[in-house]
Write a protein that binds this DNA or RNA. Structure first.
Length: 253
DNA sequence: CACCAGGCCGTGC
DNA sequence: GCACGGCATGGT
């Protein structure tokens, strides 16, 4: 079974909030002090940063087939979605992104991401701004952040700026301790911590339970826990998440 | 008007 | 330990 790469789902499906779809259906993002433009995954192969970012050395097509073979629900989820990847994002960007994500929707998270970039990042090309570093974001007060629309997440962002050194500590910690370390930041609980570990530390044993995934588990896996999906916990979760959201035609995202 | 969004915090028991 | 309300903001 040959499955097609679903770059759109990888870039816009909720594991990163850095990418935007252009009118010509290409994708662009400001990363690594540059503006990247992509039409397909092949465009990433010649760039060393993107090769790593898209985890090109991992065989996601084989993983998709393994996952699809696990049970009927996963088979349906994988076949209806196509191959999706787990990105290697910057730790800091992932931490702030998923703090922004709590009790929020993808469209609005992207809007906040852009406003933070414009207000506190730097211009790498006319009109294109990088996501602010921790030092750049340290210039923002809580009121500044609220005025950008972050709402009750503003103090969480301030706390993340002050505890950014945790991101280095996490590198050497096993999964459970890494999960605990990240939760020392206010506004980071189990779900947000799991997303940071999966989408920027390649910790594939993570299995974030958001409102959508709780529904999936309740309806299709009532007597199972995340270890059922081993060794593809994180990737299975991402397929199920994409699938259940695509089922809901009125989810406006 | 209500209810929801890739949740978490503080409180009460 | 677990249940519950509150929370900023914008969309449906």
């Amino acid at each position: 079974m040959m499955m097609e790469e679903n770059l759109r789902e990888t870039l816009l499906g909720g594991q990163t909030f850095s990418w935007r779809e252009e009118d010509d259906s290409s994708f662009s993002a400001v990363l690594n002090e540059k503006v990247y433009h992509l039409r397909s995954l092949e465009d990433a192969a010649s760039d060393s940063f993107l090769r790593s970012y898209f985890d090109l050395d991992y065989d996601y097509a084989k993983a998709a087939e393994d996952i699809a073979g696990k049970d009927e629900v996963l088979s349906q989820a994988v076949r209806s979605t196509g191959v999706i990847r787990l990105l290697k994002q910057d730790h800091w960007i992932a931490m702030i992104s998923f703090i922004l994500s709590q009790n929020n929707n993808i469209k609005r998270i992207m809007g906040l991401y852009d406003r933070l970039s414009h207000a506190y990042g730097h211009e790498v090309e006319p009109g294109r701004f990088s996501f602010p570093t921790a030092e750049e974001l340290s210039k923002a007060t809580e009121d500044d952040l609220r005025s950008l629309g972050t709402g009750f997440r503003a103090p969480f962002i301030i706390d993340a700026v002050n505890k950014a050194e945790i991101l280095e500590e996490v590198e050497s910690l096993p999964f459970d301790l890494a999960l605990q370390a990240l939760q020392r930041v206010k506004g980071i609980g189990p779900k947000v911590a799991s997303c940071i570990l999966i989408f920027s530390y390649q910790r594939r044993e993570g299995f974030p339970l958001d409102v959508w995934m709780k529904k999936v588990m309740r309806e299709y896996y009532p007597d199972k826990d995340p270890s059922y999906f081993h060794p593809y916990e994180a990737l299975s979760q991402q397929y199920l998440f994409s699938w259940i959201r695509s089922q809901d035609r009125f989810s406006g995202n």
